[in-house]
C-alpha cells in the first residue's frame, strides 16, 4: 500500500468511527445536532444525549481500544507469539478479582474502580517481580501470567458462589466489557496516562523491532533485561488503564495488531501508531453497533468484539492453514 493511501486510511478511519459513534444509538441522530447546544442555540434532548452521553463514551472507547491494541502489539513482539494479548500477564484477572471483592463488600463506585485498578497493579507487580527477581522471561513469563489468571479467576468464582445474585449480575456485565461511563472514574487523567504510556512505548519502537527478532539477537544488539521489563511494564499498565475505562474487552488487543501488521508491516515505528488508531476506531464502531442493534437493550461491547475476533481468527486459521 503506498504511503499516501496509508495516511488517508489513518485519517479517515477515526473520522468514520467518530461519526458512527455519535450518530448511532437507541435513535439515529445527526452529529451536527450538537451545534444546537452552542450558546444561544435551542438545545434539543437528542443533542444533549449526544453531547453528554455519546461523546464521552466515544472518547472512552477510542482511548480504551487504542491502549488495548498498542499493548497487544507490544506483547506479541515481546513474546514473539501471535496469540499474545494485553491480558497475558493476568491484568484482567487481577482487575476482575478486585472489582468482585469490592462489589460484594458494598464499596462505593470510586472504591470499586480503585480496587479494579489495584487488582491489575497486583498482577503487574507480581509478573515484574517474577521477571526481575527470579529472572523469568519469554515463555516462562507467559506461563506465569496464565497461572496468575487461573488463581484470580478461581478466586472470582469463589466470590460468585458466595455473592448475592444481583451482585454477580453487576460483576458479569463489567466483565463482559462495559463502556457505559458511570461518572465515577477520572476519565481525563486516565486518558492522559494512556497517551503518555503509548508515547513512551512508541519511543521504544527500535527496541521492539529488535526484541521481536528473538531474545538472543536483542541481547547481542544491546537491549538490556531492564529495557525489556520496562516495555512489558508499559504494555501491562496500558492494559490496566483500558480495563479501568471499559472492563475486560476481549480480542481488540489480539486482532487489531494483526490487522495493523498486515498494513504497516513489522516496523514498530508505523505499527504502534496504526495499532492505536485502528484499535480505538474499532472499539468505537463495536460500541456504536452494540448500542444500536437491539434497541432499547444494550449489548456489552465485549460481546461484539468477541464475535468479530472469533470470526477473524477462524478466517486467519483457515487462510494460514499450511503454516499453523
Amino acid at each position: 500500500m503506498n504511503k499516501r493511501l496509508r495516511l488517508s486510511a489513518l485519517l479517515i478511519l477515526p473520522l468514520v468511527a467518530l461519526t458512527a459513534g455519535l450518530s448511532l444509538g437507541s435513535e439515529a441522530v445527526s452529529p451536527l445536532e450538537i451545534f444546537s447546544c452552542m450558546p444561544g442555540g435551542d438545545c434539543t434532548l437528542r443533542a444533549e444525549v449526544v453531547l453528554k452521553l455519546r461523546l464521552p463514551r466515544v472518547i472512552i472507547a477510542m482511548f480504551a481500544g487504542a491502549a488495548l491494541s498498542v499493548s497487544g502489539a507490544a506483547f506479541q513482539s515481546v513474546f514473539r507469539n501471535p496469540l499474545a494479548d494485553p491480558f497475558i500477564t493476568g491484568v484482567s484477572g487481577g482487575a476482575a478479582l478486585g472489582i468482585s471483592a469490592a462489589v460484594i463488600t458494598d464499596m462505593g463506585p470510586a472504591a470499586v474502580m480503585a480496587m479494579a485498578f489495584g487488582g491489575s497493579l497486583l498482577a503487574i507487580v507480581m509478573i515484574y517481580a517474577f521477571s526481575a527477581v527470579r529472572g523469568i522471561t519469554g515463555s516462562g513469563l507467559v506461563l506465569s501470567g496464565v497461572a496468575l489468571s487461573f488463581i484470580f479467576s478461581s478466586s472470582v468464582m469463589l466470590i460468585f458462589a458466595m455473592a448475592r445474585s444481583e451482585d454477580v449480575h453487576r460483576i458479569i456485565i463489567w466483565l463482559m466489557g462495559d463502556l457505559s461511563y458511570q461518572g465515577n472514574i477520572p476519565v481525563t487523567w486516565i486518558c492522559l496516562s494512556i497517551l503518555a504510556a503509548m508515547f513512551i512505548l512508541f519511543m521504544f519502537h527500535r527496541h521492539l523491532d529488535i526484541i521481536s527478532m528473538g531474545r538472543g539477537f536483542s541481547l547481542s544488539s544491546g537491549v538490556s533485561d531492564f529495557e525489556l521489563r520496562v516495555v512489558i511494564l508499559l504494555a501491562s499498565v496500558l492494559a490496566a488503564l483500558a480495563v479501568l475505562l471499559g472492563g475486560i474487552i476481549p480480542f481488540v488487543g489480539l486482532m487489531v495488531p494483526h490487522l495493523a501488521r498486515m498494513v504497516a508491516g513489522p516496523d514498530h515505528y508505523r505499527l504502534v501508531p496504526l495499532s492505536a488508531v485502528a484499535g480505538g476506531s474499532f472499539l468505537v464502531l463495536a460500541d456504536a453497533f452494540s448500542r444500536s442493534v437491539i434497541v432499547p437493550y444494550e449489548i456489552p461491547a465485549g460481546v461484539v468484539t468477541g464475535f468479530c475476533g472469533g470470526i477473524f481468527f477462524l478466517l486467519y486459521v483457515i487462510k494460514n492453514r499450511p503454516e499453523i
Binding site: 437507541s26 444525549v49 437493550y297 444494550e298
Partner: peptide, 14 residues
C-alpha cells in the same frame, strides 16, 4: 423480556 437491560440512552430518550 420480563426484566430487560436498558441502555441509559434509551431511558433518557424515552
Amino acid at each position: 423480556s420480563a426484566y430487560p437491560i436498558l441502555g441509559l440512552e434509551s431511558l433518557l430518550l424515552a
